[in-house]
Design a binder for these strands. Structure first.
Lengths: 340, 340
DNA sequence: TTGTACGCGTTATCAT
DNA sequence: ATGATAACGCGTACAA
């Protein structure tokens, strides 16, 4: 049986409550007893039982993370690892633990979340899924349970979230290509039900406007967010009456597919068609040619999500925070000659 | 204030202990009261408080995972994500949660582990770090705290672990190349202080023997486990008096570096030098040429680590289990013509 | 400044 | 088959 607060109290000749106060750093405690207690604690190698603390405290000092469902995607990009690392670092800094909600086999994201909340295992939640079910969010809101979404949810006003500035990012990519002299710039992306796709497209279009270019439907390719999707979308663009000389793809995997398609059509990247991807997946730099991409700083997404949540847990400030993480265009060969 | 077991008891007209029994599925309980209680539980949306349960139970139904420190590596390959997914699935199946131990900033792996154990936040531990400190393991052993290591620790006898059969895998890779007619096969790897490097090398050497080939020191390149390491190691091999026509690299990243080096030297893969990598990183298939690699089934590593740990937690069986996950050679263009 | 007494929500042991 | 009671280890108003 492990050493408890009672053992420490007995050994120090004080009451358990006094020991408790020492641990809590209570102000009104005599220097002598405090020292004495600390000595005994060290001697006995006492460590407060976190569970008992939680029960008395009504706080677990633990934040829950709901893993996303689309595992193949997560698997291919290191998004999950990086975001977890960010969450982990912020949690550690503030003295919190991270509990992973794992699910599958009959249970869905919604149920998994409920379980975590209802069983009171965590003080707050970070939702990672890119298309968080409204059901989950609505339920959490109704229960007034603290949570933060990574990525913008559909109804974003009264929910805390941390996300990239995807409009700005889409703008930056397209604007760069326009300034390189391209006048026919295509866009390849996934379903517009993804908020980030919409936003990146919006930014892209804005850049066209700003550079006096017109958007053409023929230059838009929508397909699944995977390599094959990018390839198919590119095939479509190549059949346009006036094919683009550059494309912005809203995801690196799609960019890989697009590049492959272009090569197979006997053309070169970037000489015939320049390509800029998104997310700066580690793969990007290894491709032939290395792919330019918009870096999104996934670690920071996680880190700030943790910060926002913990602020919310500790502060009385009930305001919903929205944080935009800036992005950075990483230029490599696929987007054409640079001035480096 | 949430609804507790007392509320349910009151509403059902029974004692809290009876409700508890219903929850636990106790055998001696009348069908009538059981139904009644279940009704009330559903009606009141009662959910047992996990913390209180843990306190009374002395069991958290939570397993801790200690993340590795070498984040760059983890970041580049999706190892972490996959292994977590495996752990998550097994944990979920058995009704366990997963607590991530995150550390850094002054704290080391040892301290992070101690914290988890001493505060009694978890019932058992899975250690992911490739070179788990002896200090950590010794301490856990002394405390008789249940844990499982993913990968073989230095002193492996009386510790539970789950790992690939790396000797077999190294053998398979080198043997394949030998059967393709190669007589000069090199080996590129990281420091031999990594157990998996030793093992893969051992298998490689065994395959040479089995095929009547001799191992030459000139054909061994040791450098850091990253792309640049692979490139440097390959440069060295190219300077050998009789350069190899094929290489086994103990890590995909090193394989990428090796391929790059070969190309830069004006040679081709696989025509001039065939290459086989390790881990079957998602990147491998996207390389030019696509890299053959040994798939190591990271998900299974995690899954079985979870299983072994939970068995250990629940069973009285105190025996240390050792599980070998088989590997599979995935043939792509970098290893030469196949019969497909 | 310190001790007393009770509560946190559940489970387990003894009764009945 | 069920109820009363005492843990589980800690925090905290209240009293002293």
């Amino acid at each position: 049986m492990a050493v408890t607060i009672k053992d420490v109290a007995k050994a120090a000749g004080v009451d358990p409550s006094t020991v408790s106060r020492v641990i809590a750093g209570h102000p009104r405690i005599s220097g002598k007893t405090k020292e004495k207690v600390l000595m005994v604690m060290a001697e006995l190698e006492y460590h407060p039982n976190a569970i008992a603390r939680s029960l008395a405290n009504r706080s677990t000092r633990t934040i829950g993370v709901v893993m996303p469902s689309e595992m193949e995607q997560v698997f291919v990009n290191p998004f999950f690892t990086e975001v977890m690392r960010g969450i982990g670092v912020s949690a550690f800094k503030r003295g919190y633990y991270v509990l992973l909600s794992t699910w599958g086999g009959g249970e869905d994201e919604y149920k998994a979340t409920q379980r975590l909340v209802d069983e009171k295992r965590v003080d707050g939640l970070i939702l990672l899924t890119s298309r968080v079910g409204d059901k989950t969010i609505e339920s959490l809101k109704k229960k007034r349970f603290p949570f933060v979404v990574v990525g913008k949810p559909a109804k974003m006003e009264d929910v805390s979230w941390v996300d990239n500035d995807n409009v700005e990012a889409g703008y930056a990519a397209a604007d760069y290509l326009a300034r390189q002299g391209h006048t026919k710039i295509g866009f390849i992306g996934g379903a517009f039900s993804y908020v980030f796709i919409c936003e990146r497209f919006k930014g892209y279009k804005k850049a066209l406007d700003a550079n006096g270019l017109v958007f053409r439907k023929e230059h838009l390719g929508v397909d699944e967010l995977l390599e094959d999707g990018g390839r198919r979308a590119m095939e479509k663009l190549l059949q346009a009456s006036d094919r683009p000389t550059a494309v912005v793809t809203a995801d690196d995997l799609m960019a890989f597919g697009a590049v492959r398609c272009i090569k197979e059509a006997g053309m070169r990247v970037p000489e015939d068609i320049a390509v800029i991807g998104f997310n700066d997946t580690p793969l990007a730099r290894y491709m032939d040619p290395p792919i330019s991409s918009v870096e999104i700083f996934v670690f920071d997404l996680g880190y700030h999500a943790g910060e926002v949540l913990i602020d919310q847990l500790e502060g009385s400030d009930g305001h919903k925070k929205h944080i935009m993480i800036p992005t950075r265009l990483v230029l490599r060969q696929s987007s054409g000659i640079t001035h480096l």
